[in-house]
Design a binder for these strands. Structure first.
Length: 482
RNA sequence: UCCCGAGUAGCUCAGCUGGUUAGAGCAUCUGACUGUUAAUCAGAGGGUCACUGGUUCGAGCCCAGUCUCGGGAGCCA
């Protein structure tokens, strides 16, 4: 194919009167004369000027919104006001027609709900161009962050045999014939006939395998798809999402929090530097959207202000116990405005409480630590009971404004006796996790890690509000289209 | 899964107390115009009122069920 010039490079060129070829998709065709052409290299369009008097009617008719075209022409200074350069077309070739009666995208604002229904085409909008450029930058920055620090990127299995991780409902993986399921003598499904000769599921976390690697390499991270078969219908849950899970040996909870905070700041600042146009666009998009909201529902900070604020301030670190004290004496609790009133130590925090802490009380990201043992997972390190005998674990959750929990992590219980006792209490079969327990049998060491919800991070950085809009083809209950 | 709300043209939405032939803007098509910026002007086409059943002389509107979507909650990343 003829070498094409990327529109991104063309838009700030100063070399005029040269011949170029551009290829892209028509956004609009105005006045039978001006094509707004986009090739995905940036959000902006280049304006193609067509000499309609010397262009066949047949060709002009085929220049429609959505059509793919190749244009040869001369770069000239634009006579119009909206752009610096034009391309005066000398020849136009239609690469792919787009029937204007059927192409659903119009040169106007579409609702995000509508675009979600045409997720295969929504990439062709400015908003989604920006969102997925930012998503890419964040993913890249995560690898760069860990690589710079000497972490090893581990690919942990997607298919797992243990269902003991306790991180929610799992998707079953099987090749058994549902219409003719092999049964054992007592009528149970006979998994010895299945592909792996045992029940298997899609992974809900790479953490346990990550710990194994951390106990050899010292510091590792995983970044891969994660599956939860929960019937969750919210703006921040997906059945298939991407999770970043670092695991570090010889690190305590304090180190863990510092790593998490450093990582978040690093990737946000990377996005700010490398996605200036995209974030500015998303910033303005949000401002426009806020205009239609009542004053009291508008956010105090714009998207860019919010991101910069996040970089310039330490995250607030406090214990669960301290959080309960704040919540207990808070206005909404005193005035009984919380749906779930804070009364006793030990209750799990509801999202209204998290929101209060993050959005009203501290007005910045918050790291909550040392939760009651009863509401956290078996593998978290058990703290010494406090003077009142209350048991906590070395857990940490990072809460972000508008998103809630973006990171969940802990120092891990490295003491075999404590770990197995806890597993026994929670009826977690130890035989299945023999390999996990082996790390505590052979050269156990203090270690810590966390899980970052990658889409939740992307939500925060793009300012989008529905998690289904920051992943290309979202998977959620009743939906696996595309 | 639970609690609210919504589903009317390709899109965004109006549709009164149940009453004649269901409307607008944008998009599309036709024509005009031709340095436009979501071009403009004139005209035209376009509807299983989500689906199923019910009440009624009569249902887009009322009732029941189902489906889908949105917001909130739970589960969590």
């Amino acid at each position: 194919m003829i070498k094409r010039e990327k529109i991104k490079n063309l838009l700030d060129t100063t070399e005029f009167n040269r011949e170029v070829t551009v290829m892209g998709w028509v956004r609009t065709f105005r006045n039978n004369q001006f094509i707004a052409l986009n090739d995905g290299s940036c959000m902006g369009n280049v304006q193609i000027v067509v000499d309609f008097n010397n262009t066949p009617e047949e060709l002009l008719k085929r220049i429609t919104t959505g059509a793919a075209i190749a244009v040869q022409g001369t770069v000239v200074e634009s006579l119009g006001k909206g752009q610096k350069i034009d391309i005066k077309a000398s020849s136009i070739e239609i690469l792919g027609d787009s029937d204007p009666e059927k192409f659903p995208l119009q040169p106007k604002k579409h609702s995000l709900e509508f675009l979600r229904e045409i997720a295969h085409l929504r990439f062709r909008t400015n908003t989604f161009n920006a969102v997925f450029k930012v998503r890419h930058a964040l993913a890249f920055a995560i690898h760069q962050f860990y690589n710079e620090r000497g972490f090893v990127y581990m690919h942990t299995p997607i298919i797992t045999a243990s269902d003991a991780e306790g991180a929610g409902e799992m998707f079953k993986v099987t090749t058994l014939d549902f219409d003719n399921t092999p049964r054992t003598e007592d009528g149970q499904v006979d998994y010895s006939e299945d592909f792996f000769a045992r029940p298997t599921n899609l992974t809900v976390s790479g953490q346990l395998e990550g710990e194994l690697a951390a106990m050899a390499f010292g510091q590792i991270y995983t970044f891969g798809p994660t599956f939860r078969a929960e019937n969750s219908n919210t703006t921040r849950h997906l059945a298939e999402f991407w999770m970043v899970e670092p695991e570090v040996a010889f690190a305590d909870l304090e180190d863990n929090m510092t790593l998490a905070e450093d990582m978040l700041k690093y990737v946000i600042s990377y996005a700010l530097e490398n996605c200036k146009d995209e974030l500015e666009f998303l910033n303005n998009r949000l401002l426009e959207e806020e205009k239609s909201k009542p004053q009291n529902e508008r956010s105090e900070l714009s998207l860019l202000e919010k991101l910069n604020f996040c970089l310039g301030n330490d995250f607030e670190r406090l214990t669960y116990t301290q959080a309960i004290a704040i919540l207990k004496s808070s206005k909404p609790n005193q005035k009984k405005q919380f749906k779930y009133l804070i009364d006793e130590w030990g209750a799990d925090l509801q999202s209204e409480h998290e929101r209060y802490l993050v959005e009203k009380h501290f007005k910045k990201p918050v790291i909550l630590t040392d939760y009651p043992a009863d509401i956290k997972s078996f593998y978290m390190r058990q703290n010494e009971p406090d003077e009142q005998g209350r048991k906590t674990v070395a857990a940490m959750d990072i809460l972000f404004p508008g998103i809630g929990e973006i990171i969940g992590g802990s120092q891990r219980e490295e003491r075999l006796d404590k770990l197995t006792q806890r597993m026994e209490d929670l009826n977690i079969p130890q035989e299945e996790l023999w390999w996990f327990l082996d790390t505590r049998r052979f050269g156990t060491a203090p270690h810590s890690g966390f899980g970052l919800g990658f889409e939740r991070l992307t939500l925060f950085v793009t300012g989008m509000t529905n998690i289904r809009d920051v992943i290309a083809f979202p998977r959620f209950p009743n939906n696996a289209e595309f």
